[in-house]
Amino acid sequence: MNGQQAPPTADTAKLAGELRVALAQLVRRLREQADGMDLTRSQSSVLLRLERDGAATATALARAEGVRPQSMAKIVRALEAAGLVGGAPDPKDRRKTLLSITEAAREEFRTGRLAKEDWLTRALDTTLSAAEIEQLASTADLLRRLAQSP
């Protein structure tokens, strides 16, 4: 290949639509499995970013999330009130506050992920044959690559 991709065919476009619907349904089912936190998408996104990337200032979070600083302040206040985020002075600049997730948030993530994985394991075992599970296992890397594509 010369770096250019061929335009999508009708089959590729159809597959894209089917994948979008199927993955959205799966994501909805997984979300249903985790009791506990009743957060907005913005709040969840901030928590996940702090978990993945580590402590950050509200200004850095606002920039990374693409929201106004005032909106981020509201999100952070709600997360602090829920005991999911805490702040500490930035050791490099004591005028700033570094926000990080609390142990309570870490525990919510652990239990939520376990509930989702338990449900998915049961669904795989009761819905698919051994051959289908093997086939699905071979697609996990392909889905990961798709999720990471530009």
Score class of each variant (00 low, 15 high):
residue 27 V to T: 01
residue 30 L to M: 08
residue 30 L to W: 03
residue 31 R to Q: 09
residue 33 Q to V: 01
residue 33 Q to M: 11
residue 33 Q to Y: 09
residue 34 A to E: 15
residue 34 A to S: 15
residue 37 M to I: 12
residue 38 D to A: 13
residue 41 R to L: 14
residue 41 R to W: 12
residue 42 S to T: 10
residue 42 S to P: 00
residue 43 Q to C: 02
residue 43 Q to W: 00
residue 46 V to M: 07
residue 46 V to H: 03
residue 47 L to Q: 00
residue 47 L to R: 01
residue 52 R to Y: 00
residue 53 D to M: 15
residue 55 A to P: 09
residue 59 T to K: 08
residue 59 T to N: 05
residue 60 A to R: 14
residue 63 R to A: 15
residue 64 A to F: 04
residue 64 A to P: 07
residue 66 G to W: 14
residue 66 G to M: 09
residue 67 V to E: 10
residue 68 R to V: 04
residue 69 P to V: 06
residue 69 P to Q: 01
residue 69 P to C: 02
residue 72 M to N: 01
residue 72 M to C: 05
residue 73 A to R: 08
residue 73 A to D: 05
residue 75 I to K: 04
residue 76 V to F: 01
residue 79 L to Q: 01
residue 79 L to H: 01
residue 79 L to Y: 01
residue 81 A to M: 02
residue 82 A to H: 07
residue 83 G to P: 04
residue 88 A to L: 07
residue 89 P to I: 03
residue 90 D to M: 07
residue 90 D to N: 13
residue 91 P to M: 05
residue 91 P to A: 12
residue 91 P to H: 09
residue 91 P to V: 06
residue 93 D to W: 07
residue 93 D to R: 10
residue 94 R to M: 09
residue 94 R to C: 00
residue 95 R to E: 13
residue 96 K to G: 07
residue 96 K to V: 09
residue 97 T to V: 15
residue 99 L to Q: 01
residue 102 T to I: 05
residue 103 E to Y: 05
residue 104 A to W: 06
residue 106 R to E: 11
residue 106 R to V: 09
residue 108 E to M: 14
residue 110 R to M: 09
residue 112 G to A: 13
residue 114 L to F: 08
residue 117 E to C: 00
residue 119 W to R: 00
residue 119 W to N: 03
